[in-house]
Amino acid sequence: MNQATLPNPGQHFSFTTHSKNIPGNLAIWAAILSEMSEFAVMFIVYFIARVHNPELFFEGPTRLNTLAGTANTLIMLSSSFFVVRSVMAVRDDQLKAATRWLWGAVACGILYLIIKYLEYRWNAAQGLETETNIFYGVYYYVTFNHFLHVGWGTAGLVWVIYRINSGFYTKTEHEGLVNMALYWHMIDLAWITIFPLLYVIR
């Protein structure tokens, strides 16, 4: 890395405590970039399926539950916000506050999973299944994959709460928390891309 990318010495806000100015550590970025690539493949599948089936992709979003999709977008964005505030609280040595923010994010994760489950049930009641047509095939393929990420991501958030409560993290040493925060933001980024593709764009 060249000199220009090094942190500004007086800078207060940063995840970065290491020489290469990388938030968290390299391992989590390898994971995040792999996951982003995996989602990119799904988005390419979506685009290709779309150009081959324009009518199905024009009609498809109109039969999905926009309210459920919107609610889950608001929930994912809010959970990401809570995670940011948690990291800020740890840096400020407010560990109790940090765990409260994280519990907020966990609640969002659980709420997301419940809404998604109800949405799938609602779809089934409308006769929308994986085999209904290729639009819904892509929809289930992408959203169920994302659903799994939210599931294990939420478990990861509970794990970092345990780590905070067990005294593993301090104001200056909390790389694990930052890694989890970054991974959670990646899950959020995937969802904010999925939402317009499947629910909005026609």
Partner: peptide, 23 residues
């Protein structure tokens, strides 16, 4: 809208705005 939302999360939530240029 997607571009703006993504950029906000990348720059400010992931704090990449002033971080490693490659990532």
């Amino acid at each position: 809208v997607l571009a703006i939302k993504g950029r906000i999360i990348v720059d400010h939530f992931m704090e990449l705005k002033h971080a490693n240029k490659f990532i």
